[in-house]
Design a protein around this nucleic acid. Structure first.
Lengths: 227, 227
DNA sequence: GTCTATATCATGATAGAC
DNA sequence: GTCTATCATGATATAGAC
């Protein structure tokens, strides 16, 4: 056994990021103080400023650590679908699953903190602080453009602005589901210690979203198309 | 003109509530300090504690002022529908509109602060502080029970736990839409000063939600029904 | 890289004069 | 009811020893 094994298993930065993830999720970005955070991580109060520069920079690092790989995974899934389709239009349901799957798979990662992060992420979408919403918006922008283009090709008859709204609705459904994973499973009668059955949840979500995305254009909506 | 007209138009409590609504929406509950808040309201720092007792009690008052009438309106709309139907099952779309309409009508109220509150409300659903989610959960509970019962009668063939999930998804769609009213209209190409066309938004939302609620049960979901 | 100690400032709450 | 003044606490950030 090397000497390193006696030291803390994780590097200081990682332990700070893990603690920050947990505490930002529980108490919000303003509610979680650097004192709470460094205490949980088992590091000195000054360590955050040394390694990250400031609390704001730490917040950005927390998101970047998970979001960059997640969006890369999303885009890879979409590109794989498009290659398999060989030029044919994709099924909307498949596009939805490519987008949603990356988020849901993170819920399963209880040990690595992915589940904690997914709840944090769900909350961040409606975070009051403009800087945080901008930050997340920037990280998502490239993936969102690609998925929008895929939906446009899959649903050429759906008006573009209607598509934007429906993508927005789908995003809200996902965000809220991520944020409230604890609440839902209680409502649905599961015990807190139950592991999520992510595949069933993906089926539920995809069914709901697909139907909503493909909803008929009726009434006042159709008037706008005629015009 | 009476002497009263020369004094501030609104009572102190009201002005505090209005300022709190605005600042809680912009900066969150922890981020908005009592100093910011009393400065905006044009009242003394000590006024909050005098009139409400504490910051937490103020938060509760902010929600109660709008949420109690809103849920009463919701329930009244549902009961009116049921009376008109004279025992027949309601259309799911009509139930959805009864629930959603009360929230959306609040968006139109730019002058009275309803729109500000609706954005605050959308964010509060994913608020980290447990006390606030509990507070809102309690205020919503009676209405939620009644609407769930209405959905059960309208969709007897839909399994109960599936209904709970779909109500959850609908709630998320609405919450996110309320929280991001500013973002969406920019995405959709509207100018910030445009007033919302709430009837069109209600049609969009109802179309999406109805389709999602009535989505076919396929694949893994159907396995669960057979079991 | 890690620690202690501290600077500087903002917070929620309250006591007590008016 | 409204004000001023103040308390006790906790916040982020940093300087400087080790």
């Amino acid at each position: 056994m090397s000497v390193r094994a006696l030291k803390p298993l994780k590097e200081t930065q990682t332990r700070i990021l893990d603690a920050a993830e947990e505490l930002f999720m529980q108490h919000g970005f303003e509610g979680a103080s650097m004192r709470m955070l460094t205490a949980m991580a088992g590091v000195n109060l000054a360590a955050v400023n040394y390694h990250f520069g400031s609390k704001d920079a730490l917040i950005e690092a927390v998101f970047r650590r998970r979001l960059d790989p997640m969006n890369a995974e999303r885009l890879a899934a979409l590109e794989r679908l498009e290659q398999e389709a060989q030029g044919k239009a994709l099924a909307p349901d498949a596009i939805i699953r490519a987008f949603v799957g990356a988020s849901l798979r993170m819920i399963e990662d209880t040990r690595g903190g992915g589940r904690t992060f997914s709840r944090l992420l769900g909350r961040a979408y409606t975070e009051p602080a403009k800087s945080i919403r901008q930050l997340i918006g920037q990280m998502y922008a490239p993936a969102m453009e690609r998925f929008k283009a895929a939906f446009v090709r899959a649903l050429p008859e759906l008006p573009k602005d209607e598509l934007v709204w429906r993508m927005h609705f789908m995003f809200g459904t996902l965000a809220y589901t991520l944020a409230a994973t604890d609440t839902v499973q209680l409502i649905a009668g599961a015990k807190p210690e139950d592991r999520y059955d992510v595949r069933v949840l993906e089926n539920r979500l995809a069914a709901f979203m697909s139907a909503g995305l493909l909803a008929p254009l009726t009434g006042a909506l159709q008037v706008r198309i005629a015009a």
